[in-house]
């Protein structure tokens, strides 16, 4: 288990991380979300011991994280961190050796992962000669090649197309099943929704929301109602609890303040002509994120 307890970090007068606490447990994929400058990268750097925290504790399976256990950690930084003069194989050999892996083991793993991510033919190509998406895949391999106990991914899907994103997501799920604690950050909420079990939203270094994804969605009071039928916008006038109406051809998306207003909306339009769809949906993670972050900034 990864345990982050009351961790804070200050850069001069700026409090980058403010009393942050969370845990990542077995078979959990944990998402650390937030706008740019929220403190995600600082948190990751503190976890991998790149930065010294001002206060608090970070432990992995009960051990303080230091250089004696960094071989058990896989880390993919936000920005590309590759020595572009090296070939794909040389780069992977280099990083894997720093993880304390044996030469034989590294060679086997390189072949396996390059094949699995469909870049085996690039093995002897210089990194500067391959596309950014493929460079990202090489970097991803370098973070998982040692089959880490803790895998930290800062924006892992940068430059990747949907096919490759789904390829990586499958691998992450596989690792999570095999006992790897996965913690990651991403700006792409639809990607986070694909595989995240638990998440935490940081705003200006402070936790504003934390919990299991499904519970957060369920508990989030604002709901969406998707209605298809011969109705006009005037039909919704006078109904309480409607926060916004989004009109699309033949269909409407209503945002309501909470689920107690569902029945009043239903009763108001049920007798209208040709109603073919009335679906109550949980809001998307993106909507929750924008709403929460927006609320914090407005406050």
């Amino acid at each position: 288990m990864l345990k982050v307890e009351h961790v804070s970090k200050k850069y001069d007068d700026i409090l980058a991380v403010n009393d942050l606490s969370f845990t990542v447990e077995e078979h959990e994929i944990f998402g650390l979300l937030g706008v740019n400058g929220a403190g995600k990268t600082t948190t990751f750097r503190m976890i991998v011991n790149l930065l010294e925290k001002d206060s608090g504790d970070i432990t992995l399976d009960g051990h303080k994280i230091d250089y004696s256990i960094t071989d058990k950690i896989g880390f993919l930084p936000e920005e590309r961190s590759l020595l572009l003069k090296l070939t794909v194989k040389e780069q992977l050999m280099y990083y894997a050796t720093l993880k304390g892996m044996s030469h034989k083991d590294i060679l086997e793993k390189i072949d396996y992962w390059l094949k699995r991510l469909h870049i085996w033919e690039l093995k002897d190509k210089k990194l500067k000669e391959i596309s950014k998406g493929n460079q990202q895949k090489v970097q991803f391999i370098s973070s998982i090649i040692n089959e880490p106990r803790l895998l930290i991914l800062d924006e892992p899907f940068t430059s990747l197309d949907p096919f490759n994103v789904s390829l990586l997501v499958d691998i992450l799920k596989e690792f999570s099943r095999k006992n790897t604690l996965v913690i990651f950050s991403s700006h792409r909420m639809e990607q986070v929704e694909m595989f995240c079990d638990k998440l935490l939203i940081l705003v200006e270094g402070k936790t504003v929301l934390e919990g299991k994804l499904q519970e957060i969605k369920n508990q989030y009071r604002k709901k969406k109602i998707h209605i298809t039928g011969d109705i006009t916008i005037e039909d919704f006038q006078g109904i309480e609890g409607i926060l916004s109406i989004e009109k699309r051809p033949d269909e409407y998306y209503l945002t309501i303040a909470d689920d107690s207003y569902i029945s009043s909306v239903f009763h108001a339009i049920k007798d209208k002509n040709n109603i073919t769809q009335f679906v109550v949906e949980n809001p998307s993670l993106n909507e929750i994120f924008v709403s929460i972050v927006g609320d914090v900034y407005e406050d």
Binding site: V48, N49, I73, P77, R80, S81, Y95
Partner: peptide, 14 residues
């Protein structure tokens, strides 16, 4: 190593 940011990976291990 700094400009390619590979320093982050290296220093997280050494």
């Amino acid at each position: 190593e700094k400009s390619t940011k590979s320093m982050e990976i290296i220093i997280s291990n050494v």
